[in-house]
């Protein structure tokens, strides 16, 4: 075996055992029939897929999941880009502190962060109480147990995954490029649109892909903030697998969601140029 292959072996083994085999296993399970005396029976059947694909109920959930994913990604881009810009461009003494604050959501576990939002957004939470105390309203403002709450929390939780790659490309970008544009007669806005933006597209793209993938597969945050009233596909998958103990159907549900997400990613990659050259 060549030295190069040998060096690749450890990584390859990790990938095969932790990613490829489990995935292959899920695919196999999704074609198994249900069994009364175990997680799944022997033989092959497409029935699980028929159940998922023909059910308007599941399609609604897939659509909810993807809709939340798209909106969260867009919000994270909108909020994350200016932050990434500031962190990459404005040096000075506060830079380290600003970075720490921007990336701090990563320091706290996802469950804790999501619970944090329930404290803020709950019907009896900080914001509602404050609004009542200030006399702004007498009724409850519905901030939670709806898509709004789920999206707010997801955006916060996954924002660092948008900021980091964009910050990376912006840091690599020679500030003289923008200045060259200005010296040639471009306004700040035009220099941004014609020079900075195209050159940081790769970072925007990876940020969007990461946030989208993380969002459509998120479980804890939609569950805590949606309180079973916002049904996303991962929640259904978990309850099918664990509560109903129907592994084959759960596997099929998970794979259909993955497939839909994958198709959207492919479309996204096609629409945005991965690299600025050619």
């Amino acid at each position: 075996m060549s030295r190069r292959l040998l060096l690749m072996l450890p990584a390859a083994l990790v990938l095969i055992f932790l990613i490829v085999l489990p995935y292959a296993n899920i695919i196999v399970i999704s074609f198994r029939p249900l069994s009364p005396d175990g997680a799944y029976g022997q033989g092959f059947t497409a029935a699980n897929y028929v159940t998922v694909l023909t059910s308007a109920h599941y399609w609604r959930q897939i659509w909810t999941t993807i809709w939340i994913g798209l909106v969260t990604t867009a919000l994270a881009l909108l909020l994350g880009f200016p932050v990434a810009w500031d962190l990459a461009r404005n040096r000075g003494r506060s830079q380290a502190l600003r970075r720490a604050i921007a990336l701090s959501p990563l320091l706290v576990g996802i469950v804790v962060r999501s619970y944090g939002w329930t404290i803020l957004l709950g019907n009896n939470g900080v914001i509602n109480r404050l609004a009542r105390a200030l006399g702004l309203t007498q009724s409850i403002i519905p901030l939670m147990y709806n898509r709004f709450g789920v999206i707010v929390a997801l955006t916060h939780v996954f924002l660092p995954f948008m900021i980091l790659p964009i910050m990376g490309v912006l840091q690599e970008l020679d500030p003289a490029l923008e200045q060259a544009g200005r010296s040639l007669g471009a306004s700040p806005r035009t220099a941004f649109r014609r020079i900075v933006l195209p050159l940081c597209l790769p970072g925007v793209q990876s940020g969007c892909v990461m946030v989208f993938i993380l969002t459509i597969s998120a479980y804890v945050t939609p569950m805590l903030l949606g309180g079973m009233r916002v049904k996303t596909m991962p929640m259904t998958v978990v309850s099918t697998l664990i509560d109903a103990f129907r592994w084959p159907l759960g596997a099929a549900q998970a794979l259909v969601l993955s497939l839909c997400g994958g198709l959207i990613l492919i479309a996204f990659m096609r629409l945005t140029p991965m690299r600025w050259n050619r």
Binding site: L177, Q179, A180, S183, W276, N277
Partner: peptide
């Protein structure tokens, strides 16, 4: 209305 040449050249790579 200036023409400027930078140390890094600052040519637009795209």
């Amino acid at each position: 209305d200036i023409g400027m040449v930078f140390q890094s050249y600052a040519l637009f790579p795209h």
